[in-house]
């Protein structure tokens, strides 16, 4: 046996996997060859070193106990590992996304409802002056005092577009907090709109207030002072 043949057989020689004849040949060669002998010694030492150092951990007691129980009950309570390892991981992200989506929708709905509530509450608080009174709170029927103005002219003063393209605001009331209200062009409203001389007059108005469009559906108008001296007594019901 030459060195190459010997070295090829070293691993099975160490593991005692050679037939008797080859084993004897290897032993004989190792006796006379220093190089192969050190080759053998090295691998043999590694094997015993690994064996010695890789200490075996014993299986946890709970595992042993649960398997023993499983055998006695014919594995009747076995969980489906295939489902848990192979199927569930595919669905877990979907479940997570669905949960996230539901949460987002829920939060969005909550915030929107808060926002709407706030809008309702805040508008009357922001838009109305301090000295108004509710005639009927549920209908937003309100009585307040202000100055009759031309809404277009007022808007122009602030650099706005003179004719409101959205709501068509014309004549209206400016309350003491500076908010412009437009008088709705119905029968009663037209009477105010038709009287140019009313501009600048102070008036106490009762009517239905529409906060989103700043319109007033007029019911009563009571002039308290006149801007122009030739203004006569004015009545809506006339």
């Amino acid at each position: 046996m030459n060195c190459m043949q010997c070295q090829e057989n070293i691993t099975p020689y160490i593991d005692n996997e050679l037939d008797e004849k080859t084993k004897k040949e290897v032993t004989a060669h190792l006796d006379i060859c220093e190089k192969c002998s050190s080759f053998y010694k090295s691998e043999y030492l590694l094997k015993s070193f690994v064996q010695k150092r890789l200490s075996k951990i014993s299986a946890p007691d709970d595992l042993k106990e649960s398997i023993r129980k499983s055998i006695r009950s014919d594995f009747s309570f076995k969980q489906n590992l295939f489902f848990r390892k192979k199927i569930l991981p595919y669905f877990r992200p979907i479940i997570a996304y669905a949960a996230a989506a539901v949460l987002v929708v829920f939060i969005a709905t909550y915030l929107m409802s808060k926002l709407w509530q706030q809008k309702d509450v805040d508008l009357s608080k922001i838009l109305l002056p301090d000295d108004f009174t509710y005639v009927s709170e549920s209908e937003n029927k309100i009585a307040l005092t202000g100055t009759i103005v031309c809404v277009c002219c007022e808007m122009k003063k602030y650099g706005g577009h003179p004719a409101c393209k959205k709501f068509g605001h014309t004549y209206g009331l400016k309350t003491d907090n500076g908010v412009l209200w437009t008088i709705m062009k119905n029968d009663k409203g037209m009477k105010v709109i038709d009287h140019n001389e009313l501009i600048g007059a102070r008036a106490k108005i009762t009517g239905w207030f529409f906060f989103n469009s700043n319109y007033i559906d007029l019911e009563e108008l009571e002039l308290t002072s006149f801007a122009q001296s030739d203004t006569k007594v004015f009545s809506l019901n006339k």
Binding site: I57, S58, A59, L63, K64, R72
Partner: peptide, 16 residues
């Protein structure tokens, strides 16, 4: 059951 428990369970440490 008895045979399985006796023969198979003794290798649990190796398997673990």
């Amino acid at each position: 059951k008895g045979r399985f428990e006796k023969e198979a369970l003794m290798h649990i440490d190796s398997l673990y």
